[in-house]
Design a protein around this nucleic acid. Sequence first.
DNA 1: GCCGTTTTCGGCCCGACTGTTTTCAGTCG
Length: 572
Amino acid sequence: MARTNDDVAAVLEEYADLLAITGHEDFKIRVYQKAARSIGAYPDDIAGYDAAALRRIPNVGESIAAKVAEYLRSGTMAKLEELRGRIPAGVRALTHIPALGPKRAMVLHERLGVDSPASLESAIAAGALRGLPGFGPKTEENLLHGIALLRDSGQRVHLGVAMPLAEDIVAALEAVRGCRRCGYAGSLRRMKDTIGDIDVLATSDRPRVLMDAFVGLSQVTEVIVRGDKKTSLRTGQGLQVDLRVVPPDAWGAAVQYFTGSKAHNIRTREIAQHHKLKLSEYGLFDAVTEEKIVSRTEEEVYQRLGLPWIPPTLREDTGEIEAALAGALPDLVTEADVRGDLHTHTDLTDGHASLEDMVAAAAARGYAYYAVTDHGPNLYMQQMTLGKAVAQRERLRELDGAYGPRLLHGIELNIDPDGEVDWPPDVLAGFDVCVASVHSHFDLPRDRMTGRLVRAAKNPHVSIIGHPSARLIGRRPPIDADWDEVFRACARSGTALEINAFPDRLDLAAELIRRARPYGVKFAVDSDSHAVGHLANLRYGIGTAQRGWLTADDVINTWPLDRLTAFLRKNR
DNA sequence: GCCGTTTTCGGCCCGACTGTTTTCAGTCG
């Protein structure tokens, strides 16, 4: 369920695109894009705002405030409707074809009447582009290729796909002679939950050798562009990987630049300008003399801009610049802060490893405590019974301390459509930790869904709501609930919200985490492991927690055991 | 159209690569 802010941001983005297609000045287009970002990132819901209230949002001036107020009032914006009337929706879709931007999309529309990717394909086939200025034979070929790519859509992938691939590529390039330094940047370094392409950065005195190695990687199916400074290729999964090679002493400026986000970079460059400096991937320069000032490390670059180093997971221009200037950046939770995992499975239900193997793996990770939370009986196919749970508890007590971690016996309960869970209070009281999660009935009306989650949170034996939105990235949208109401209930009842670290879940998502924190909600970053190898997925959950601006104090499984057990008991 | 450690007017982030050009526009990140 989109917030009003997201809706308005999308409308302004569309307006900016249509201005670009109709040939308006670049700066005017950027202003609308900037305003769209500011409104999308604005913490309060702008539903019902009038023009005066809207003008208090950064980058929203008189004209945009009037347009947005009109839209909020009437659900429509006259200027946008006028452009929509002139430009068919398909023309905007043309600009989604790789290598086709607004300028040439406009040429195609005006000269040939092309109004969709499909009609462009026909026009090319009919030879209609021949003789059109700016469109040669190579362009035709590229456009056809781009339309095909768009059709079987280069979908974004989740971290679990992109991260291992990036790490393999970085390891391979580090082994190449002459490679001084190599790492991934971009949305992957920022730990976004989905990744459009992988950005790899390297320093080398022999860039050509590195580029040769890069295009020769086994994962490569297509070389998109090839140069000494930049090469782009596509892997078998259709994922684009870019490699940029910069001189060794430019590492800091380059990794800052290629980590992004774009919005964050625009802000840092503006700050540079105000200091009469110029920031590029090659360094921070004096704007007048062009003399290089710093470039070696990110810390130096930020420092010279008057900022502390900003963690990559915060670099979205959603307040981190202001916080940095005010000396108020959060002391983010890290993987090293985590003392244990509170949501894991064994082969008693749908896990693939034995209790002993899971506990040994947890011990190897250095955990101080570790909870086993197999599924309760209401997930019928798991065939759980109270007898099996009690037997598991006895075995767990025998193993307690034998491997290292203090072992907690838990259960993952199922939240039914009414907010009830598998067992009555007297049975639940026997567990050290109860996680409760939604596993079905994903499309209840919003008020019922909200009531369902609130009731589960209020259950005195439920300490953690597992994967709260039940989303599966790319496959299932999050459930619709009044999240602010859920957050209030969790804060009041002392129920933690899970940040499920499984890479196709990452649930809660960062935006909701950040919204929940001011209510005083606590969080548990859990792996939801079903196999030994899954324990390491925790890092994706920590990245997501960082994107939600969380500190270690916000995350209950960074706490010492006595503080944790007091929280889990919920004042019972 | 927005904004202000240079400004209420005059500027707006920067560089690489491609393809179509004979010096550069368009696109992308």
